[in-house]
Lab assay of single mutants.
Amino acid sequence: SKIRITWGDKTWEWDGDDEEVWKRILEWARNLGDEELWRHVKEWVDK
């Protein structure tokens, strides 16, 4: 399956939905430097 994140007018996609993928997404969000996006992603990961 895919994980799709839409933020503003951008959309990103990742293949898979296991823990490793979420770790990569969390790292990606942090590297993007958008605090609010990172917080949202972290909330999803922690669920």
Score class of each variant (00 low, 15 high):
10 K>Y: 11
30 R>T: 13
32 L>E: 14
46 D>N: 07
17 D>N: 14
35 E>D: 12
30 R>H: 14
22 W>N: 04
22 W>K: 10
18 D>V: 11
17 D>V: 07
37 L>N: 01
45 V>M: 14
34 D>H: 04
21 V>D: 03
17 D>M: 09
21 V>P: 03
16 G>I: 12
27 E>G: 05
31 N>K: 12
16 G>V: 10
5 I>T: 01
37 L>K: 01
11 T>I: 14
16 G>D: 08
45 V>N: 06
23 K>S: 12
17 D>T: 12
33 G>H: 07
33 G>L: 08
19 E>F: 11
5 I>N: 00
40 H>C: 07
41 V>P: 00
44 W>K: 03
25 I>K: 00
8 G>S: 03
7 W>A: 04
18 D>K: 07
23 K>G: 13
19 E>G: 11
31 N>S: 14
17 D>W: 10
20 E>V: 09
25 I>M: 06
14 W>K: 00
1 S>W: 04
43 E>D: 14
46 D>S: 10
17 D>G: 15
25 I>Y: 00
12 W>H: 06
29 A>F: 05
29 A>N: 00
11 T>N: 06
34 D>Q: 03
27 E>Q: 09
22 W>Y: 13
22 W>I: 08
41 V>Y: 02
18 D>N: 15
23 K>D: 15
18 D>S: 15
26 L>E: 05
12 W>I: 06
7 W>N: 03
18 D>E: 13
3 I>P: 01
44 W>E: 05
31 N>M: 13
39 R>E: 12
34 D>L: 05
10 K>E: 11
38 W>N: 06
30 R>M: 11
38 W>P: 02
44 W>H: 08
34 D>W: 09
15 D>H: 07
4 R>L: 13
46 D>Q: 09
24 R>W: 07
8 G>T: 02
26 L>Q: 05
28 W>V: 02
38 W>A: 12
26 L>A: 05
46 D>E: 15
43 E>R: 07
7 W>I: 06
20 E>W: 10
9 D>G: 04
9 D>T: 02
33 G>V: 06
47 K>A: 13
20 E>I: 09
7 W>M: 07
30 R>I: 10
36 E>Y: 05
17 D>E: 13
6 T>V: 10
3 I>S: 01
35 E>V: 04
29 A>D: 00
13 E>R: 00
24 R>Q: 12
42 K>D: 04
20 E>Y: 09
45 V>Y: 15
47 K>R: 09
3 I>N: 03
9 D>S: 03
10 K>D: 14
44 W>D: 00
47 K>W: 04
19 E>Y: 13
3 I>D: 00
25 I>P: 00
10 K>I: 11
34 D>Y: 07
9 D>V: 01
30 R>S: 14
6 T>R: 10
38 W>K: 13
7 W>T: 03
23 K>P: 08
21 V>S: 08
21 V>Q: 05
43 E>W: 05
35 E>W: 06
28 W>F: 06
42 K>E: 09
6 T>I: 13
7 W>D: 02
21 V>T: 15
28 W>C: 02
9 D>H: 02
12 W>D: 02
25 I>C: 01
33 G>C: 06
9 D>N: 04
24 R>S: 12
25 I>E: 00
25 I>G: 00
32 L>S: 15
4 R>T: 12
7 W>V: 07
17 D>S: 14
7 W>L: 06
15 D>W: 07
23 K>N: 09
30 R>G: 08
24 R>F: 08
20 E>S: 14
2 K>I: 07
37 L>G: 01
18 D>C: 03
5 I>K: 00
5 I>Q: 00
30 R>K: 12
11 T>Q: 09
29 A>K: 00
32 L>T: 15
4 R>S: 13
17 D>F: 08
9 D>Q: 02
18 D>T: 15
28 W>T: 01
12 W>T: 06
29 A>W: 02
16 G>P: 11
14 W>I: 04
7 W>P: 00
36 E>V: 05
35 E>T: 05
6 T>G: 04
4 R>W: 07
21 V>E: 03
12 W>A: 04
22 W>Q: 05
1 S>G: 15
24 R>I: 14
4 R>P: 01
2 K>P: 07
9 D>A: 02
34 D>G: 05
18 D>W: 15
32 L>Q: 15
1 S>Q: 14
4 R>E: 09
27 E>A: 09
2 K>R: 12
13 E>C: 03
3 I>Q: 03
42 K>A: 12
9 D>C: 03
12 W>G: 04
27 E>W: 04
38 W>D: 03
33 G>E: 07
38 W>I: 15
22 W>S: 04
1 S>Y: 08
12 W>Q: 04
26 L>I: 09
20 E>Q: 13
14 W>S: 01
15 D>G: 05
35 E>L: 07
23 K>I: 11
43 E>L: 07
46 D>A: 10
47 K>M: 12
33 G>T: 05
20 E>T: 13
40 H>I: 11
38 W>V: 13
40 H>P: 02
5 I>C: 04
18 D>G: 14
19 E>N: 15
7 W>E: 01
